[in-house]
């Protein structure tokens, strides 16, 4: 039991401390490209050089703030879209006959087990100028010249919703599956119309499932890199992509670290919220 504990401390917690440290360091044209935080000054006095410049830089250059704002917007709207598409699906699966339920569930899980990269790639084939969708629409005579869909925000939303949909459906299904459907019958017996019963009984009771699923979409989507990089085009400013470019293209490790720390500060409240929702869900199950 001590083993996983130590492992996570060493490879999960300690790295964040290092990231924090480097985010306060100066850039350097060396390998690794940053200056140490602790420096021997003179004979035996140790100087700590804390440098807030990286953070100051992030707040002065509108690129970064825009990227943060845009990431949150994209993640939020994607979560909402996932919810709109995923809720009826989770609901329908939970109310299907048990034998059918397992098959439908399997069909939701299956894409999740195939490579994310390949599934995003599939959308390139569908969305590009001479891609499947344009070809079909043109041959049907609905449009006369191809629509520009690839490398637009639209493509990015499609990619994110598509990739994260199973993450929303599964916790929601797990929650709805435990629902006592006689409650709906009771509500109808007491005079509720079916849609009223849904809004007054089912929806409030599935609150934890909605929250857990939304969190599983929202948090990783804020930091998403692959989808904006492949579908979003050069103007798709997402913070994950900015971090990647700072790190790999500009070799600005301290700036990338500062971006990571800010992103983390932004997401930690949501992660804690997710954990408390999860704790409530499992406590309710027992």
């Amino acid at each position: 039991m001590a083993l996983p504990y130590l492992w996570l401390l060493l490879f999960f917690v300690v790295p964040f401390i290092i990231v924090l440290k480097i985010s306060f360091s100066d850039m350097d044209l060396a390998i690794p490209p940053y200056k140490p935080l602790l420096e021997w000054v003179g004979q035996n006095s140790l100087a700590i050089k804390v440098n807030f410049e990286n953070y100051a830089f992030l707040f002065t250059d509108s690129l970064y703030l825009n990227a943060f704002a845009n990431s949150i917007k994209v993640a939020f709207l994607s979560t909402l879209l996932c919810l709109i598409i995923g809720y009826p699906m989770a609901y329908g699966i939970a109310r299907a006959r048990p034998a059918l339920r397992n098959i439908l569930l399997l069909l939701v899980i299956l894409p999740f087990w195939t490579s994310l990269l390949l599934r995003v790639y599939a959308w390139i084939g569908l969305l590009k100028a001479n891609g499947v969708i344009n070809n079909v629409l043109m041959s049907l005579g609905i449009i006369h010249e191809p629509l520009t869909m690839l490398y637009t925000p639209f493509a990015m939303y499609v990619g994110i919703v598509y990739s994260y949909l199973p993450f929303l459906i599964l916790p929601l299904y797990a929650n709805l599956e435990k629902m006592d459907w006689q409650l709906l019958e009771a509500a109808q017996d007491l005079g509720c119309r079916p849609w009223q019963a849904f809004f007054k009984i089912t929806l409030p009771l599935s609150r934890n499932g909605i929250l857990a699923g939304s969190m599983l979409v929202f948090i990783p989507a804020v930091g998403e890199f692959v989808i904006p990089a492949l579908l979003g085009g050069p103007n798709a400013l997402m913070i994950g992509r900015v971090l990647w470019d700072e790190f790999f293209s500009n070799r600005a490790w301290p700036v990338a670290s500062a971006v990571a720390i800010l992103l983390l500060i932004l997401l930690v409240p949501f992660m804690m919220w997710y954990q408390s929702v999860q704790a409530r869900e499992t406590a309710g199950a027992r």
């Binding site: 999960f12 599983l216 948090i219 990783p220 930091g223 890199f225 994950g240 983390l264 997401l267 949501f270």
Partner: peptide
């Protein structure tokens, strides 16, 4: 520590 990696953005 076991819940955080589930939702932590991979870039971080």
């Amino acid at each position: 520590m076991t819940t955080a990696p589930l939702v932590m953005p991979e870039v971080i």
